[in-house]
Every structure is written in C-alpha cells, then in structure tokens.
Computed example of a mutant assay.
Amino acid sequence: MPAVTCSGPHCVTCSDAAVPVTVVSLHGDLLAMVDPGDGEWVEVSVALVDAAVGDVVLVHAGEAIGTAARS
C-alpha cells in the first residue's frame, strides 16, 4: 500500500479532529480500509468500535473512536 499523504484541511491519520469516514472493508486483525470521501482509501484500527462495511466511523489518529447510528 502506498504511503498516505494529507492533502485536505484534515488528515485521517494525523488530524486534531475526528474525521467521518466510510468503512470499505474489514480485516481479521481489527483493521479496516476506509474512504474519507476523496477516493484515497486509508487503513485504520477498528479495535475500539463495532463496525461493519458501509458504516460511517469517526477516526482520530488512525483509530476509529465511534460509529454513526445504523439504519
């Protein structure tokens, strides 16, 4: 996987703010690929949340810290 670079006002992995992203795929090692909306998928930890593919999660410093309500 190529290195992640920050190009917007917030970065999924180094921002001071939690960023909403969509879970694209889950991995058995408590990691997920997420899409922050710019098409540049990023791998983050989902160890602290119960997330499923398609869920919107809040990510801070590479860690999902919350999920949006499921419909």
Results as ranks from 00 to 15, higher is better:
M1Q: 09
M1Y: 10
A3Y: 09
V4H: 13
T5D: 01
T5H: 08
C6V: 11
S7M: 03
G8W: 00
G8D: 09
P9V: 12
H10G: 00
C11W: 06
V12E: 00
V12N: 05
C14P: 01
S15Q: 03
S15K: 09
S15I: 06
A17I: 15
A18E: 02
V19K: 11
V23S: 04
V23G: 00
L26W: 07
H27E: 11
H27C: 11
L30C: 13
L31S: 06
A32E: 06
A32L: 02
M33H: 15
V34Y: 04
V34L: 04
G37T: 03
G37H: 05
G37P: 02
D38G: 12
D38N: 14
V42D: 03
V46W: 00
V46E: 00
A47E: 10
V49I: 09
D50L: 12
A51D: 03
A51Q: 01
A52N: 14
G54S: 08
G54D: 07
V56W: 09
V56R: 08
V57T: 10
L58Q: 11
L58K: 09
H60L: 11
G62D: 09
E63M: 15
E63D: 15
E63W: 12
T67S: 08
A68F: 00
A68W: 03
S71F: 15
S71T: 08
